[in-house]
Simulated assay, not measured.
Amino acid sequence: MPGQYSQIFIDFRGIRDAVMREAGFDYFENSRRETYANRAYCVANPMGWQAYSGRLWGLAACDGPGNFRLPYGSETRQFYGYSARGPVGEPDGRDDGTLTPSAALGSLPFAPEIVIPVAEEMRKWPGLYDRYGFRDAFNPSFKYDVHKLETGSVDPQSGWVATDYIGIDQGPILLQAANHRNDFVWRYTRRVPAIRLGLKRAGFTGGWLG
């Protein structure tokens, strides 16, 4: 979910550029809707992957088990290693059953009512959470005994889990949790003159820029 990264540092609530003024809402609301759309796609689960639900969702670029074509149900499915992931039919529409904690948990400030249940569920998923936080990704449907995984390991009951903890994914989880709690990052960057000037020059008005 690329909409997370700028909003880790910039509080877009109530400020709008020309695009958002025409749309009638701000980029924070845009990301809130994107968060709900990500969840809705996983709940609909058109590919029929295991474990997708309203409490277990999150598609974004992440690690994967590797590039394999393997039988799944009555057909052959393509799995990927590290790749962009998203709803089937979209430009990055690679949905191979792999979920990443950062997609949901990095969206905490936008929609805590649907993200907190995901954090609780993923915290319990076997092998996904350890001393350094959440591993990068997991795939409950990938239970194959294959050689040369790109990363991670496979459990015959719970599926594949990545080995890596990746900073670019851990960062959004931690910093957005801090923003949700008390505007930890946002309250400082709102006071930075260069950020305020840059936003105004980009055409943003309203809210805390007023």
Rank of each mutant, 00 (worst) to 15 (best):
G54K: 10
P112F: 00
P101Q: 08
F204Y: 12
E150A: 08
D169C: 01
T189Y: 09
D63M: 10
I116L: 13
Q7P: 05
D136V: 01
V118D: 03
D11S: 05
G66S: 14
E121I: 07
S102M: 07
F142N: 14
M47F: 12
G24D: 07
M122H: 08
R190N: 09
I114H: 03
F204I: 00
E75R: 15
E90I: 01
N30E: 09
R191Y: 04
D96T: 03
R85I: 03
P193L: 04
A60Y: 00
G203P: 01
F184R: 10
P172G: 03
P193W: 09
V19P: 00
I168A: 12
R181W: 05
K148Q: 13
V154F: 01
V161H: 01
S83F: 12
I116C: 03
K200L: 14
G207L: 00
I8M: 14
P87M: 08
N38K: 04
A103E: 07
I10W: 05
H147P: 04
D17G: 09
K143L: 01
R201I: 09
R39L: 11
V88H: 13
P2G: 14
D136I: 04
D63G: 04
D95N: 05
C42A: 08
R135F: 01
G206Q: 06
S6A: 11
F204N: 00
P71K: 15
Y36W: 09
G54N: 13
L56H: 12
Q78T: 10
F110R: 10
L174K: 01
Y132H: 13
T151L: 02
S31Y: 13
Y165D: 12
